Amino acid sequence: MPLRTATPSGTAAVRGTVAHEPGPRRIRRRRGPARAELAHFAGFGAPGVLVYACFVLAPIAVSFGYSLTNANPFNPPTRYVGAHNYWMLLRDDQFLTALRVTTILTLIVVMVPNVLGLLVALLLDRSGKFYNAMRSVFFTPMILSSVVVSVIWTRLLDTDGPLNQALRALGVDRPPNWLSDPDYALYSVASIISWQMLGFCVVVYLAGLQGIPVELQEASAIDGAGAFQRFRAVTWPLLAPALTINTVVLLISAFKTYDYIKVITNGGPGAGTTATIAFNVLQTGFDANHVGYASAMAIAMLVIVCVTTAVALRILRGREIDL
């Protein structure tokens, strides 16, 4: 039993014990749920992030590293040259010509399928077996390989192909050389790409049309709006998300065009009449073996695509309407 001693204040204290004043309690945070959520996210997201890092980010980093050198597997040693390759691009007539060709091709491929796809979608926005079959017909080219499409159209647009034979039968003495004439070759290739991408635009616009509330169309019709007025005031503003998707997809697809050019014209006719930047990248890197310069060209193309896409997204998203 502890001894009690008297204190001057007349209170009793227990000998051998020290009295502590109660202090503020520490609040312990529970980290269990947060760690569980992090582990759950890592379990689902890690595979996708790993694949993206290995097959997208890592090649970009390696290409950027090569772009700062004069890498050539058949002409060692490899030396660091800094931004020399990028300065050479600004003075390279071949690259500037490819940039002009790519820009023209991209403008055609972005505008033509968008306009025609919207018109076709408006015509097919009806119920019935016939319209369902027509939707399949317009989407069929999208499931074909670009190489197959290129070979088919090369035969159709040949000098003695079916198209020129039909024109001769109609009385045209000298039909155009669609793929061998520098004045027609680029526009012919752009038309082929537009033809294949038309089905994609039709499907996206059809999805947008079917998502427009019928009540809005009926209300505008009751107010006395005609068909064109309903399209301009109701349908077209609500199709802004579909326009954004189509424009961005077509923009990226057209700017990295290579397979059509390789199969149809091989960069000709003439010197670089249809040669795009992507075509020049592979020609310079694998045929001429100038890996460093080709990598700089690829990085420049990546920057141009990223900037152009960002600007397009900013402009197009500004006119989207939330339902």
Rank of each mutant, 00 (worst) to 15 (best):
S150N: 04
V203M: 15
I192D: 02
S150L: 09
N177V: 07
V189S: 04
S188I: 09
L198H: 09
F231D: 03
G226K: 04
V149L: 08
S145V: 05
V151I: 15
N164Y: 08
S220M: 09
M142A: 07
V149T: 15
D160P: 00
F228Q: 08
L209D: 04
Q196L: 09
S194C: 06
M142D: 00
R155I: 11
L238E: 02
G211I: 05
G161V: 07
L216F: 09
V204D: 09
L144M: 14
S145D: 06
T159A: 14
S180G: 15
S191K: 03
D160L: 09
P176F: 03
V214I: 10
Y205H: 15
I193E: 07
Y205T: 06
V172Y: 08
I212K: 01
D160S: 11
T235W: 03
N177Q: 11
L186A: 03
Y205A: 08
Q229T: 13
P176G: 06
Q165S: 14
A219C: 01
L238Q: 05
L179H: 04
Q165P: 02
S180T: 13
S180I: 02
S150Q: 04
A169C: 04
I212D: 01
P175T: 01
T154C: 01
G224Q: 04
G171I: 04
I212M: 02
F200K: 06
S188A: 14
Q210A: 12
P213T: 08
I152E: 01
T235M: 04
D223G: 03
G199R: 12
I192N: 07
C201I: 09
L163G: 00
M142W: 13
V204K: 08
L163C: 02
P175K: 03
L179P: 02
